[in-house]
Design a protein around this nucleic acid. Structure first.
Length: 263
DNA sequence: AAAGGATTCAACCGCCTTAGT
DNA sequence: CACTAAGGCGGTTGAATCCTT
């Protein structure tokens, strides 16, 4: 890729670089983030001495430079998990990636677009006989929205040990940012993000248990089911591990559930 | 060996939401 | 209330690489 693509920053008049990152730029960005931490991306180009826009810096860090990024082909259980999560969540790549350690949303999205989308399309085209259509049950795709808690919430302020209970970045996000104003949740309704996570996990566990039943032949889940049954069961086992899978941010269905329980 | 078509994936773009003023 | 800046996301692009003829 040629690096001559440039654009002018609107205010500073600085010429910003575009295109592939050089090793030197990577080093500058890495040093900067390690020194100052993630966030404040608008300051990163300045502090790092990079002629890149904030978004470019953020993306490069998230998709390539961040520690523990897993490169290389996806393993079979990862693929199976993507398929199942996509059925559940649709194109919510960041949520899906959040469940697959070391994989980025871009990785998942690219993999889906190159390997799985065509397979899914083909599956859709294939005519179903009466029996197979009976075997398939519609699965409602959960579409959570980007979520942010108001910083004015009491438990958000200061040193909140709740926020330290999860190691995984995405888990932390689900706790800190797990409520969306779109669902008309007033802060008063929220007792604790830990409770919320537990409820959500419980709910999602049920959903996945349904998925597990499905691969045993009760509901159609898989794209080419024959190869997936055992893999899916392996995944289901992993899902029982503590802190492993059930810490999604919320969605409308989940909030309805929570409302019905008058939390 | 070379041409050109197909595929992959890093990076960009535009949009949405939230926070701050 | 309106506006702006920033963070974040999914969709798309296009250069690099692979594959086929």
């Amino acid at each position: 890729m040629e690096y001559k693509r440039m654009k002018h920053a609107s205010k500073t008049g600085l010429v910003l670089r575009k295109g592939a990152w050089t090793a030197e730029e990577d080093m500058l960005l890495k040093n900067c983030v390690e020194k100052y931490g993630e966030g404040k991306w608008h300051l990163v180009p300045l502090k790092a001495g990079l002629r890149r826009c904030r978004k470019s810096c953020r993306l490069r860090w998230l998709n390539y430079l961040r520690p523990n990024i897993k490169r290389g082909d996806l393993e079979e259980d990862e693929i199976d998990l993507i398929l199942r999560l996509h059925r559940l969540l649709g194109n919510r790549w960041s949520l899906i990636a959040g469940r697959i350690p070391g994989r980025t949303a871009n990785d998942v999205k690219n993999f889906w677009n190159t390997h799985l989308r065509s397979r899914a399309k083909q599956q859709k085209k294939e005519p179903h006989d009466a029996k197979s259509s009976e075997d398939h049950t519609m699965v409602t795709i959960i579409k959570p929205r980007p979520q942010t808690f108001s910083k004015t919430l009491n438990w958000f302020k200061g040193d909140n040990e709740i926020m330290e209970t999860h190691d995984d970045r995405n888990l932390r996000r689900s706790s800190i940012e797990g409520v969306d104003n779109n669902y008309n949740m007033s802060p008063g309704l929220i007792s604790s993000p830990v409770i919320l996570d537990d409820k959500i996990n419980e709910f999602l566990k049920e959903l996945f248990d349904e998925g597990e039943k499905a691969v045993n032949g009760e509901i159609g889940w898989s794209f080419d089911g024959s190869q997936m049954e055992r893999k899916a069961l392996n995944v289901a086992e992993q899902e029982n591990d503590e802190n492993s899978l059930f810490d999604f941010p919320t969605d409308e269905v989940i909030w309805n559930l929570l409302d019905s329980e008058q939390l």
